[in-house]
Amino acid sequence: MKLKKNIALSDTGFVFDPSNGNSFSTNPIGLEIIQLLKQNKTQSEIETKILSTYEVDKNTFEKDYYDFVNMLGKLKLNAADEKD
């Protein structure tokens, strides 16, 4: 998944979408994943990073990752909703 290019992200987990004024708060792990997505990391790269940092098994990560990414899409934060 690719995030919109202009998404603003703060260290506190505050996410701002300047194209529509929406803002959200995320927890530290959500923040870390969004930061990795902003760096255009693939799912596999993100998985490697998270599994090596936290005590979590692959299946749980995948389930939560899909849930999270699906939610980012619903919140229109993915690049698919971005006009060229």
Binding site: N6, P18, S19, N20, G21, K83
Partner: peptide
């Protein structure tokens, strides 16, 4: 451009935010 964030029962913006929308 602005998006209303808080709207009164008369439909008026009580708060709003400037947005980046080229269109």
């Amino acid at each position: 451009p602005m998006r209303k964030q808080y709207i009164t029962d008369k439909g008026k913006a009580w708060s709003g935010i400037s947005i980046d929308d080229e269109e």
